[in-house]
Amino acid sequence: MYDPTRLAALIAVSEAGSITRAAERLGYTVPALSQQLAKLEREAGAALLVRHHRGARLTGAGELLAGHARRVLDEMERARHELARLAGLSGGRLRLGTFQTAGIHLLPPVLSAFRRAHPEVGLTVTDREPPSGVAAVAEGEVDLALTHTYEPADPVPLPAAVSAEPVLVEELVLVTQPGHALTSGTSRLPLTGLAGQPVISMAPEHPPRQAVERALAEAGATPAVVVDTPGYALVCALVSAGLGVAVVPEMVARTASTPVGMRLLDPGDLRRTISVAYRTDEPNPAADSFRALLRGAFGRSAAAG
Rank of each mutant, 00 (worst) to 15 (best):
3 D>T: 04
4 P>A: 11
11 I>L: 15
13 V>C: 05
15 E>G: 04
21 R>Q: 13
30 V>E: 04
31 P>W: 04
34 S>L: 02
41 E>C: 01
45 G>K: 01
62 G>C: 04
72 V>W: 11
74 D>G: 10
76 M>D: 11
76 M>G: 09
77 E>A: 14
88 G>H: 11
92 G>F: 06
103 G>E: 01
104 I>Y: 03
106 L>W: 07
108 P>G: 08
111 L>W: 00
113 A>F: 02
114 F>A: 01
118 H>N: 11
122 G>Y: 05
122 G>L: 10
128 R>V: 09
129 E>F: 05
133 G>A: 05
135 A>Q: 14
136 A>R: 03
139 E>W: 08
145 A>R: 04
149 T>H: 07
169 V>S: 05
170 E>L: 11
173 V>Q: 02
182 L>N: 04
185 G>I: 07
189 L>E: 09
189 L>H: 03
192 T>Q: 04
205 E>A: 10
225 V>T: 12
225 V>M: 03
229 T>Q: 15
231 G>A: 14
240 S>H: 11
240 S>L: 10
242 G>N: 03
242 G>E: 08
244 G>C: 04
245 V>A: 05
248 V>A: 07
249 P>G: 13
251 M>P: 11
254 R>Q: 14
263 R>N: 02
266 D>Y: 11
271 R>M: 11
272 R>E: 15
281 D>Q: 09
287 A>G: 11
290 F>T: 06
305 G>M: 10
